[in-house]
Nucleic acid binder design. Structure first.
Length: 410
DNA sequence: AATCCACAGGAAGCCCGGGAAC
DNA sequence: GTTCCCGGGCTTCCTGTGGATT
């Protein structure tokens, strides 16, 4: 490569017109000043929470809806407006947002709440009721209404932490000054089925369901954001409808739609294109899918990686699908080669199920009659991509293994 | 109709690291 | 230091099961 060529490699980046004005607008963390097609929900929630401004306890609310239907953004939006209004009315009011996917145990939730009110609680160590008492004292120090937003509240079911909901719904009877009200946000429509009926009735005093956006509504949302995000005229006509249509197929997920639009723009920008085209959107779709998988595989613990490797080896060497027992046999061999502890089949079975939930493999339970019941396991990702990803892990990079050929029976 | 395979998947409990309090 | 508590990964033990085979 000569010097001239080197100079030239930067040229396209320098002379090209930027496509974006403000990319941040397309991130789902951004809250626009208006939320299209959610006016009713906003009114509903605002109406329920309004008594807080007079120092009364609002009813608890349970909000349902699939991912990307605007539950979180709408609730946060209303809470923010409420806090603004509270300042005007001189009402003592706090809204606290907790994401139960991250903060997922009774201890952690109470500890987080306490910290919000200036009590320092260690990450672990105290008995849970001590944390509870600390929180209670912290909020009861003055007259105020505390609204707790529990996002992804359904995640508590899997963690067996639902008793924290019960504790929080009952806390008002132990408070003299402060008042607590809860907003639970759930992705799972069947969430209350897993709850104790006492919790169910007190948490679900008011229930609001967020319906998925349809393609038309997604288009409106995208248009609104695109106006702020992109320079005028850089989006080809079909781009927004295509993003909307692709996301609508995935149960009307606005978050996906926005990601799609943003990544399409980024790809176009990188290619030095002056316009975002439908082809960019399709590339973006592929990129998002494979990025998600890649990240999931990379962050897998070693044991899971070895299990995945075993599935790969089996898939390459056989024409029929693998079963749990076969995977376990190969897995054991791989562990010996890699010098890693061998886990029990019970545990490996769970690891396979985890790979399934991550969407890396596809497993289903089948009965083979006399030959038992097992999981049939298939890869749901390109085999070469997986191999490459696993090779990145130095513990696995040197391992090659092929299934020994069946012993011939004479 | 009874049997029996090859697991699934629940329950309980162990062990360990991290952190606090004493 | 010791003692307590928590959470997560894991094992042990267990009961359950769909349907081809006997």
């Amino acid at each position: 490569m000569n010097v001239n060529a080197l100079e030239n490699i930067f040229e396209p980046f320098l002379k090209k017109e930027p496509i974006f004005i403000n990319k941040e607008v397309l991130r789902h963390t951004y809250t626009p000043s208006e939320l299209p097609h959610r006016e009713n929900e906003i009114k509903q929630i605002a109406g329920i929470l309004a008594p807080a401004l007079k120092g009364e306890t609002p009813s608890n609310i349970l909000i349902y809806g699939k991912t990307g239907t605007g539950k979180t953004i709408v609730s946060k939006f209303v809470c923010r407006e409420l806090e603004k209004a509270a300042k005007k009315f001189n009402a003592n009011l706090r809204c606290i947002y907790i994401n139960c996917e991250i903060v997922d145990t009774k201890y952690r939730i109470l500890a987080n709440l306490s910290r919000e009110f200036g009590k320092s609680v260690p990450f672990t160590g105290w008995p849970t009721d001590k944390v509870y008492n600390a929180f209670k004292r912290a909020i009861d120090s003055k007259k105020q209404v505390v609204i707790i937003l529990l996002d992804e509240i359904d995640k508590l079911v899997a963690k067996n932490s639902t008793d924290v909901i019960y504790t929080l719904t009952r806390i008002n009877s132990e408070l003299k000054n402060a008042k607590v009200s809860l907003i639970g946000i759930s992705n799972d429509l069947k969430f209350t089925q897993y709850l104790d009926s006492r919790i169910k009735s007190s948490l679900g005093e008011e229930e609001i369901v967020f319906a998925p956006y349809n393609a038309k509504q997604l288009e409106d949302i995208l248009k609104q954001r695109a106006e702020l995000a992109f320079k005028e005229g850089v989006l080809e006509e079909g781009v927004i409808p295509l993003c909307a249509a692709l996301a609508a197929r995935e149960h009307g997920d606005a978050r996906k739609a926005l990601d799609l639009l943003r990544i399409s723009g980024e790809i176009a920008e990188r290619e030095g294109a002056s316009k975002v085209t439908e082809a960019h959107v399709r590339k973006a779709k592929d990129k998002i899918e494979s990025d998600n998988i890649a990240e999931a595989v990379r962050t897998l613990p070693t044991q899971s990686k070895i299990v995945l490797y075993a599935i790969i080896v089996l898939e390459e060497s056989k024409d029929k699908v693998a079963t749990t027992g076969e995977v376990y046999e190969v897995y054991k061999n791989l562990c010996r080669i890699a010098g890693v502890d061998i886990l029990t089949q019970r545990r490996v079975s769970d690891l396979i199920s985890e790979l399934d939930t991550l969407g890396i493999v596809n497993s289903r339970v089948v009965s083979k009659g006399r030959y038992g019941r097992t999981k049939e396991i298939k890869l749901s990702v390109d085999i070469q991509q997986l191999r490459d990803l696993l090779r990145e892990d130095y513990k696995l990079s040197g391992i090659e293994y092929k299934i020994p050929r069946q012993r011939r029976l004479f």
